[in-house]
Structures are given as C-alpha cells and as structure tokens.
Simulated assay, not measured.
Amino acid sequence: MANHILILGLVVLTCSLAFAFEPSPLQDFCVADPSSSARVNGLVCKDPKLAEAKDFSFSGLHLRGNTSNPVGSKVTPVTVAQIPGLNTLGISMVRIDYAPWGIVPPHTHPRATEIITVLKGTIDVGFVTSNPDNRLISKVLKKGDVFVFPVGLVHFQRNLGHGNAFSISVLSSQNPGVITVANAVFGSNPAIADEVLTKAFQVDKNVVDWLQSAF
C-alpha cells in the first residue's frame, strides 16, 4: 500500500512539473499590455474587450533582412514584442537571412526548442550536446529541409553558397531569448575576470584581452 501511495505521489508530482513548465492558457487569449508596471512571469493581459486584429498580426517577413554586418546574417523576430497576442501562447517565429557564407554564430535559446526550415539556399546547421560528451550533431540542409535544435543547446547556422539564403524558424516560447556564446563570454558588462577566461580556454591573457576588446 505504501509503495502504491509513493508511486501515485511521484506521478502527480511529474504531471504537476510538466504543466508548470508550459501551462495552458486559461482564457481565449491574453494580449500583452506593455504599459503595465506589474511584474509577472510574462506580460500582463489587457482588457480582452480592447483586443484588435493588429494585436494578432505582423507584416514584414517577405522582406529580406540587411546582412551587411560582420557575421553576414539578419534575424527578423516575430515574438510577443511584435505580436502582443502571442502572450501566454508559447510560440514565436523568426526569419533569418544569410549573405554568401554568412553565419548565425553559436548561441542558445534558454526557453525554447527551435525547428528550422530552409526556403532558399544551402545551410549547414548543427548543435552540441551537453557535458561531458559535447558531441556535434550537424547536417547540410537544402530548400525544404527541416532540422530541430533542442531547447538550451548551443547551435549555429552557416550559408554554404555564393548566393543569398533564408530560412524560417518556429520556437516553442513567446519570448525564447537568445544568448550568443562569444558575446556573453567575451562581451559581458562588467567583463569576466581574465584569470577565469585564461584558465577556462587555456590561452594567454593577451588572447583574452584581444577577444574582449573585439566584443
């Protein structure tokens, strides 16, 4: 009997944790009210009677992004910041444009899994598994191909062609967040101590200083 109670308790706890991670909305929608000063996990809902079509729409994904930057890519996001009606719905998307040989540098989304579809060009993609293996799982994608980046894992994209390319990604969060590895490590404010980075990367202090100056 005690074993049955323990198992039942574990099942209830597991279900509770699963629902707590991505709770279902308790209303038809919760249009974000960015003017509210209330602090909640997400954004406060405005009065649903004030909801309009513009709260649920976005125009611009047909436009090519400006890739004239050092990495040769441009991300056009469609998150809750662009569509207030995404609030609490657990989904967003981005368009990514790539210059010839442009990249999206190694980064993570702390709150979302990403599924990417290539619409033009040939894109090399990959992610790295957690410690201790740190195994690279990668694939070259062509038009119409799809690939998944699991939540929280470091991943990248690279245009392998001499022409422009672009892709569309869908993410499992209204606000997936993005942590670009190089920016976070070498461009933090204030800077991470040299002693930490020289030991972590097993390089000379001059190399660390140079990298920090670049970011």
Rank of each mutant, 00 (worst) to 15 (best):
D124W: 07
D124I: 00
D124L: 11
D124N: 14
G126A: 04
G126W: 03
F127S: 02
T129L: 01
T129H: 00
T129F: 00
T129G: 05
N131E: 08
P132W: 01
P132C: 00
D133T: 14
D133V: 13
D133Y: 01
D133L: 11
D133C: 03
N134D: 03
N134M: 06
N134R: 10
R135F: 02
R135T: 14
L136I: 13
L136S: 06
I137C: 01
I137T: 09
K139E: 09
K139Q: 14
V140C: 01
L141S: 05
K142L: 07
K142Q: 14
K142Y: 06
K143A: 14
K143N: 12
G144Y: 05
G144N: 04
G144A: 09
G144H: 05
D145I: 10
D145K: 03
V146W: 05
V146F: 06
V146S: 13
V146L: 15
V146H: 05
F147Q: 03
F147M: 08
F147V: 08
F147D: 07
F147R: 01
V148N: 10
V148T: 15
V148Y: 10
V148Q: 09
V148F: 04
F149P: 02
F149I: 05
V151E: 14
G152V: 02
G152R: 03
L153C: 10
V154T: 15
H155L: 11
F156S: 10
F156I: 12
F156W: 10
F156T: 09
R158S: 14
R158I: 13
N159K: 06
N159A: 12
N159G: 12
